[in-house]
Design a protein around this nucleic acid. Structure first.
Lengths: 66, 66
DNA sequence: ACAAAAAGTAAAACGAACTTTACATATAGT
DNA sequence: ACTATATGTAAAGTTCGTTTTACTTTTTGT
């Protein structure tokens, strides 16, 4: 699962810690998601979508063919 | 987290087992998600969106105010 | 009413999502 | 070069998503 969090942060000049705070998760969680270590839960994806005022699909991209 | 899985199944005349098979999860997982026992993972939400050719937001609805 | 299929439920087990604490490395400003 | 801020990483622990097995209840068809 790819995501555009780093770019969306950059556009707003937010640090990982800033984003973490706004999403109510730990900084390590943001880091891990950005680095692709794991996928966010669906509720967290919704929260990010609300924060950035984007569709989930515009932030997170599935990379499945099947 | 609410979802429209039951309706989407009904429109296609699929049982929970049918949907489970198409999404590659167990029937109990579908049942639990439909009954609101837990939220699907983001990858599973994407899979459902692809299957139904809908946006994730058109299948699953967050019910958060904060 | 009966049988078959579908839906609901529950417990045990496992991996994934997330936390806290802690430290290491990188980047930027003076 | 020094300091502060930002990012990366790791271990241990908790909760959540999912599976398997198995049983009960509801719905549907004849």
């Amino acid at each position: 699962m790819k995501n555009r969090l780093k770019v969306l942060r950059a556009e707003r000049d937010w640090t990982q810690a800033d984003l973490a705070e706004r999403l109510d998760v730990s900084r390590q969680t943001i880091n891990a998601i950005e680095k692709g270590k794991f996928d966010p839960s669906l509720p967290l994806a919704f929260k990010a979508a609300r924060l950035f005022e984007l569709a989930i699909e515009d932030i997170f991209q599935d990379e499945e063919t099947t």
